[in-house]
Simulated assay, not measured.
Amino acid sequence: MALSLPVAAAQGDGAKGPVTNLPLPRYVSLKTSEGNVRRGPSLSHRIDWVFTHRSMPLRITAEFGHWRRVEDNEGQGGWIHYSLLSGVRTVLVEANMASLHTRPDAGAPVVAKAQAGVIARLHTCETDWCEISADGGDGWVPKSALWGVDPDELRD
């Protein structure tokens, strides 16, 4: 006999979480420096994965009670308790030595470079560019160099 959990999985635009009524999928970040990721939405489920980077961006794909099904940029994940998550938006720099510009323009002066794997705070996003900050540096990066923001997402 199979057990079916009443979760809402992301199935196209307009999907909403049954618990929060927030969009699915959506991005959040890890609030703590360590977060156990379980096979199912309860403490009785086995820990399959441990996320170990505070502020790491994660994508929520489903909800069940106080649990959220999340995945990282590699698609790894499972169920994590909502108390370990934050609504603060962060991104992962995926392009190696991504240039941070003074404005959203490839011709604008470069103020810093970010190595692949850097976790940065997400600020404003336009059609093709996002403003990020990390380690005291702030600048505009092509959206395509980041994980943790949707290609069509706009942020003020």
Rank of each mutant, 00 (worst) to 15 (best):
S42T: 06
T124A: 13
E94D: 07
L146K: 01
G75F: 13
Y82Q: 08
V91I: 05
E94H: 04
E131W: 04
V93I: 13
G139H: 07
C130D: 12
P104K: 03
A98F: 10
D13A: 15
A116G: 01
V88M: 09
A112G: 04
P41I: 01
W49D: 05
V88S: 14
V118C: 14
I47D: 05
V37M: 10
T20K: 00
A8H: 07
P23G: 00
R38K: 06
V141K: 09
E131S: 12
W129E: 08
L43W: 04
G148H: 05
A114Q: 11
Y27T: 02
R103Y: 13
A95N: 03
T102L: 15
L3H: 09
T102V: 11
I119F: 06
L92Q: 05
E71R: 06
R89S: 13
A145M: 07
Y82S: 04
D48Q: 04
G40N: 07
R59A: 14
V19Y: 01
E34V: 03
V110C: 12
G139E: 10
H53M: 13
H81S: 05
T20I: 06
V88D: 14
N96E: 15
G78L: 02
R46E: 07
H53L: 13
R155H: 01
A112L: 11
M56A: 15
H81L: 12
G117Q: 04
E63V: 10
D152K: 08
P104G: 10
P142K: 14
N36S: 04
R121I: 11
P109C: 06
P18F: 03
A134T: 03
D13R: 12
W140D: 06
H101C: 00
H81G: 04
A15L: 09
Q76F: 11
H53C: 02
A106V: 06
G75C: 11
Q11W: 02
H101F: 03
D150L: 11
Q76G: 02
V28W: 15
R39F: 01
R89W: 02
L85V: 05
D150H: 12
I119N: 08
I47F: 10
S83D: 15
L85D: 00
V50Q: 15
T102I: 14
T102A: 15
Q11R: 10
R103L: 09
V19Q: 15
E153T: 00
L5F: 15
K16I: 01
R68P: 02
P142R: 08
D156K: 08
S99T: 10
D48P: 00
T20M: 07
V141M: 15
S99F: 04
